[in-house]
């Protein structure tokens, strides 16, 4: 078994992974129901690069092709990339923070809170739009934040948070949220299918507005997670140990929880509940590069982004023109891969 790649090797690997991510994203732009030639795709993309645009003409390419590339495929790829990176980074951080291999972005009820928020918006048939975001997304975000605040306050004794209580409270609130979602679905059966589809997650309605809202959350959030990676390493070996090594454990925990919650809430409210990415990608890379968050986190971010772009491309291409919910793809293709990796790592330990 690998016990952590160090130094040069991990540097080379991460560059390879970034190249792979770019390649996957490009490939995703070429694939789709509509038949648009590779050359045209390139011309359209280059035309939209500021400064370069004037030299590349897109004459002769139908408007619909330009709209498909710029407003559909490109926004989907970018959104999938951002959400994948965010959820995977949150998963990696939470697994360390709680020293719990099952930790993932939905653990503290954030996803179910977003689901309830979205359900209420769909239930009420809300139609307002703020900052280019639909009522469903805004309501989902509010639901997520309220849920995490409730869970946090349940598990808090003074300034201390007990991870066990936090996880239990999160699970309990999740069940309650799901129950309310189901109740609401019964009362608005005509909207039931939309609620269900929302909870399965999708990038169908991606758009530049969603990307612009997500970017500040992710840039700020991921930077903070990266800055705290070394502290988190120490916390992952035990909270008392971390405290005796001079880390203000409760403060770091609060900061990381807040950041994780905000990233998750932003991701889930723009794209619905996409499971699995946050659970599996960090584990996969932990098996490959070891548990050091300073190395693992960048891998998780890039790996999560690449994984979700692949899954979303499959979601749109496999059953074209029908779409498969991306959450189903992540589980169907992710699980066997993950299980294979588990078996292999088990074997090499024994």
């Amino acid at each position: 078994m690998f016990s952590g790649l160090k130094g040069k090797l991990s540097g080379v690997l991460i560059i390879a992974l970034i190249v792979l991510l770019i390649f996957i994203s490009a490939a995703s732009l070429f694939l789709g129901t509509a038949n648009i030639g590779y050359v045209d795709v390139f011309r359209i993309l280059l035309h939209h690069i500021p400064g370069l645009g004037d030299q590349i003409s897109i004459d002769g390419i139908p408007d619909s092709a330009v709209t498909i590339i710029m407003k559909l495929r490109l926004t989907r790829v970018i959104l999938a990339l951002l959400v994948g990176a965010g959820l995977s980074a949150v998963g990696s951080t939470m697994q360390c923070l709680f020293r719990n291999p099952m930790a993932e972005p939905g653990l503290l009820g954030i996803s179910s809170g977003a689901g309830l928020g979205a359900t209420i918006a769909i239930f009420l048939g809300l139609n307002t739009t703020v900052f280019g975001m639909g009522a469903t997304a805004i309501s989902a975000f509010i639901g997520a934040i309220i849920t995490i605040l409730i869970v946090y306050n349940i598990s808090r004794t003074g300034p201390k948070i007990s991870p066990t209580v936090l996880i239990l409270a999160g699970t309990a609130i999740s069940f309650m949220n799901s129950a309310i979602i189901q109740l609401l679905m019964i009362f608005r059966r005509d909207r039931m299918d939309y609620i269900m589809l929302w909870t399965m997650g999708s990038f169908t309605t991606s758009g530049w507005n969603k990307i612009l809202i997500l970017i500040p959350f992710l840039v700020a959030g991921l930077s903070i997670l990266l800055l705290y990676a070394r502290q988190l390493n120490v916390i992952s070996t035990g909270e008392e140990t971390a405290q005796s090594l001079g880390i203000e454990v409760e403060k770091v925990k609060r900061i990381l929880l807040a950041v994780c919650s905000l990233i998750t809430a932003a991701c889930v409210s723009t794209s619905g509940i996409i499971g699995f990415v946050g659970l599996i990608i960090p584990h996969v890379f932990r098996l490959i590069v070891g548990p050091d968050q300073r190395i693992l986190l960048p891998y998780s971010i890039i790996g999560g982004a690449a994984f979700l772009v692949i899954c979303d491309t499959l979601a749109r291409v496999i059953a074209s023109p029908a779409e498969i919910p991306v959450g189903a793809i992540t589980a169907v293709f992710g699980s066997p891969f993950f299980i294979a990796l588990l078996i292999r790592s088990k074997r090499s330990v024994m």
Partner: peptide
């Protein structure tokens, strides 16, 4: 050409049909 069902629309197919 099928462009979706009641709840899922394939925007790319819709656009490409111009």
């Amino acid at each position: 050409i099928v462009v979706g069902d009641f709840i899922e629309w394939n925007f790319e197919t819709i656009l490409s049909l111009e």
